[in-house]
Design a protein around this nucleic acid. Structure first.
Lengths: 121, 121
DNA sequence: ATAATAGGTAAGCATTCGCTTACGCAAATT
DNA sequence: AATTTGCGTAAGCGAATGCTTACCTATTAT
């Protein structure tokens, strides 16, 4: 039972769930109302999303509010980011921006980050 | 048989394959040499990566060189990007950059792109 | 021509996935 | 107290996944 963010967002229903609660937490039944599949199916998706940290549950009476905690997307983002220069300028200016980032001093970040240090291309 | 980029990069072996050939194309056996699993297993992974456009094959004699074509990662990147402001500043300055992008006029892009127009948060 | 090499693909198999129905329990309603 | 509502989870099932072995066709080497 692999459980990582890449796996979690591979399922379209789970991405839709994230879409749905990204900006406003919802309880489980409200989420399930937006889908064709059964409530238990949604419940299982939510469980997976929780297990890799993309969702947090706030218990409130008998309801469970699901709140998106998308920090973990960073892992995916980073993996893609390392290749961005191989394709990005076809779509946007992001690679220029990244170049700037590498050359400019950090703005508001203390220690503890070893970000753009190993870039071997 | 769903076949999309999210699904394709969900498998760690496939991500490793991409890693391996991102900067230098390799033929299939050379790729397979880097993994524990059998050559056919790798061949099947390559097939999947090809089917969603992340890899192209250049036939060269009896060898097939696999070349990474990572443009399709854009789809994943975009999906994540829309939520970046919900978490990014915990890790880097990207959200500031995105704000700048929205306010600044485009640098080297003509028409035909409707990028950062709908951002409802 | 024969053998070796590169690699595609089918068949089979164990495991995982996504879903359903069924059931259970706690909180809220009546 | 009894019922309803919200939700977790087990069991079961078909389909998909990832792997293997076996076999096949092309290209290259001898």
């Amino acid at each position: 039972m692999r459980r990582d963010v890449f796996q979690a967002i591979a399922d379209p229903t789970r991405r839709d769930i994230i879409n749905l609660i990204a900006y406003k937490p919802l309880n489980l039944n409200s989420i399930a109302d937006n889908f064709e599949v059964s409530r238990p199916a949604i419940s299982q998706h939510i469980k997976i999303l929780m297990e890799c940290g993309l969702i947090e549950m706030k218990k409130q009476g008998r309801e469970r509010y699901c709140e998106a905690k998308l920090e973990q997307l960073h892992e995916v983002s980073q993996w893609i980011e390392q290749y961005r220069k191989l394709w990005a300028d076809k779509f946007d200016r992001m690679d220029d921006i990244l170049e700037e980032l590498k050359n400019a001093p950090p703005k508001s970040s203390p220690e503890g980050r070893t970000q753009n240090n190993a870039n071997k291309a």
